[in-house]
Design a protein around this nucleic acid. Structure first.
Lengths: 239, 239
DNA sequence: TGACCGGCAGTGGTCGGACCACTTCGATGG
DNA sequence: CCATCGAAGTGGTCCGACCACTGCCGGTCA
């Protein structure tokens, strides 16, 4: 109501209140004041503490929820997520879903770089159990004609390799790049052109390289595999 | 008020109203009903159309804003973004900001894979103007002792290369992986150990490979550059 | 004694309305 | 013709109420 007109009051007024709240909560987590899994005060209390209305606070919470930082459980409370790579990169899938034309090719270029690296790492680190799982999906993929099932095992095949690479962040990104709708859109056309045989051969090659613990071969096989789809898509888009 | 008790009413009840609104708007954009840059109806109208309160609608808009899909301009309206890679991958920086310990190493592994690929692509595609810009940042970086300035030109150096690679998506991801706070945190310690000379040498090597239009050399130089930091960080974390 | 279950308090989810801050654009006056 | 001002429109914020769900505590019954 008063305060010295110039100078400005202590609560540095920058951006919207909601934006400020988002930053403050994010900062609290960044500084370790809020541990993963910990429960936050109620929306009402939180709003009071940060000096804003519950509505605005709810928007801040929603924003952080989308970012994968917080998790709101109806009737229970608001919690900090485990901050796993998967939590934070969940929105990554949206990019794949909304991308069109040239951007799809770019996404596959990114995927080629990561998938080949993951395969190389996996070749060096994969455990016998994980190798067994990879073989399982490979066999299941070859044993059925149902496109849905093939797609499912295809996804699982690559996921298993990404995990075996021992880099959760990379695995989470690849997961996003293979989001359900993305894969469906791109592969629909690709596999309808009788590319099943080629896909099987390429998957087999990747598995062989993994079994042989040959990083370079795995890298090459994975890169070639993604490049095949990439080339096809490039032709479709007309680039 | 009535309706046949079983069966359930038409408006398929799944998840929260806000969540449904998010999906519906996202779907509209995905199906091309909403073009990039287009203005949406007002919050009040949108809420009425989708049959929910303005509060809930605002949360939906906030969520899509965080995802980089929508943009709200105070006093003007809500607009669909250009859906550029940069818009959609803005939240990627949050991952880098909130990551600690082992995950930082994982992020650098990802960066190594992408940065080396980008360098290879850039070597083949870079234009004389872009090469000039790269040289400019290289020179500026060597001409000052101010850590802040060095960091700024360092970032610009890598950004220029990422852009020259001609893959906006890859550039956007790398941008996120080099977010201000991330770089500051990691490089603070690294460069204080007198790594400036080494950094300069490595940057020069990358530039040399680009000038020579040698993709393989560029890939190797970039990979080695990131690997240096990665090794240092690995030692710090104790992995 | 033990498991079951009923109700109750607490919390997030939704709603409606009011007012504020900012942008936009047309009317006004020079 | 241009600059200025003002009103309408829109997002931003706040308030208060009620709904839906979770979790827990105490009572009940086998």
């Amino acid at each position: 109501m008063n305060e010295s007109p110039p100078g400005g009051p202590p609560p540095a007024p920058k951006g919207t209140v909601t934006q400020r709240a988002i930053e403050r909560i994010k900062a609290m987590i960044g500084e370790g004041l809020l541990e993963p899994g910990q429960r936050l005060p109620t929306e009402r209390d939180l709003a009071a503490q940060l000096g804003l209305s519950r509505s605005s606070m709810r928007e801040a919470v929603r924003a952080l929820t989308v970012m994968g930082v917080l998790e709101a459980r109806h009737g229970s409370g608001i919690y900090v997520t485990q901050l796993q790579a998967g939590d934070l990169l969940e929105t990554f899938g949206v990019v794949a879903d909304l991308s069109r034309g040239p951007r799809l090719v770019e996404l596959l270029e990114v995927r080629r770089a990561l998938e080949s690296t993951a395969a190389a790492l996996a070749a060096a680190r994969i455990t016998p159990e994980q190798l067994k799982a990879v073989e399982g999906h490979l066999a299941a993929m070859n044993a059925t004609d149902d496109p849905e099932e093939i797609l499912a095992h295809d996804l699982a095949f690559h996921r298993e390799i990404a995990i075996a690479a021992g880099n959760e962040t990379m695995a989470a990104i690849l997961e996003g790049l293979s989001s359900r709708t993305f894969r469906t859109r791109v592969w629909r056309g690709y596999q309808e052109e009788g590319a099943y045989a080629r896909t099987r051969r390429e998957h087999a090659a990747i598995h062989r390289a993994l079994a042989a613990r040959d990083p370079e071969a795995a890298r090459a096989a994975a890169a070639a595999h993604v490049a095949e789809v990439e080339q096809w898509l490039r032709a479709q888009v007309g680039t």
